[in-house]
């Protein structure tokens, strides 16, 4: 159930990288940005997609489930924490199992790092760094009611389809009103790769 969380609206993202810079300032991973900002078709389109950890709820945190060292812990408020430094062995299972492509890994340090919803801030009621600095509201932090009060009529979805599997998440995406009943496509099954039909 969605509480206070991040709502992502890629349609508002202008690719300014403010979120990427602000993320570096987070105390729990100082100097390293955990947010991803991808340009889907550089040179052809200005479309950009910010990706934070979606804090999967069902199945709960696949990254944590595949972790052989029980290094990824989930707090009771549903936040999937980054790997415990004592336990993480740097195997990259979480990096490759995450359907959203979120966790990062430092192979030298044998340590996974990922967005933890700026837990040092959100645990005390503050907004995450990325949502604080986003100039266009592509990353909004608050409750659904707060979002809808600010943007009347806006709809969100918190489930994503990967083939036949639907993953419910703690972080939601803004979708058009007619798409709200359906899970957002997650990119699987892949039907075409580099212009070649792979079905």
């Amino acid at each position: 159930m969605m509480g206070r969380t991040i709502f992502i609206d890629p349609g508002r993202c202008i690719g300014c990288q403010a979120c990427v810079s602000a993320c570096r300032e987070c105390d729990s991973h100082r100097g390293k940005s955990m947010i991803h900002l991808d340009y889907s078709d550089p040179g052809q389109s200005v479309a950009s997609l910010p990706t934070v950890c979606m804090h999967c709820e069902d199945p709960v945190a696949p990254c944590a489930e595949v972790c052989p060292a029980d290094a990824i812990l989930v707090t009771a408020d549903g936040v999937v924490q980054q790997a415990d430094t004592t336990r993480c062995i740097g195997c990259a299972n979480c990096v490759n199992a995450c359907p959203f492509g979120v966790p990062k890994i430092d192979l030298q340090a044998k340590l996974q790092m990922k967005c933890n919803l700026c837990y040092d801030r959100t645990a005390y009621g503050l907004a995450p760094m990325c949502a604080t600095v986003c100039p266009t509201g592509a990353l909004f932090y608050g409750t659904l009611e707060e979002l809808q009060a600010e943007r009347p009529g806006v709809q969100v979805a918190d489930s994503f389809a990967f083939g036949d599997v639907v993953v419910s998440t703690g972080v939601a995406m803004v979708v058009p009103a007619d798409k709200v009943q359906w899970p957002v496509p997650g990119g699987l099954p892949v039907v075409e790769v580099n212009g070649v039909d792979v079905r």
């Binding site: 890629p10 349609g11 991803h36 991808d38 889907s40 078709d41 389109s45 479309a47 997609l49 990706t51 199945p59 696949p62 489930e65 595949v66 990096v95 490759n96 199992a97 995450c98 359907p99 959203f100 492509g101 979120v102 966790p103 994503f160 990967f162 083939g163 036949d164 599997v165 993953v167 995406m173 979708v175 058009p176 798409k179 957002v184 496509p185 997650g186 990119g187 699987l188 099954p189 892949v190």
Partner: peptide
């Protein structure tokens, strides 16, 4: 976790594939 076929794509490509699916089918 029946989306294990996605392991054959790197994290960045997973995000791009999802972004493109959003572009094509959602918004």
């Amino acid at each position: 976790l029946d989306f294990n076929a996605f392991v054959e794509y790197c994290p960045r490509c997973k995000r791009i594939l999802r972004g493109n699916a959003y572009l094509t089918h959602v918004k």
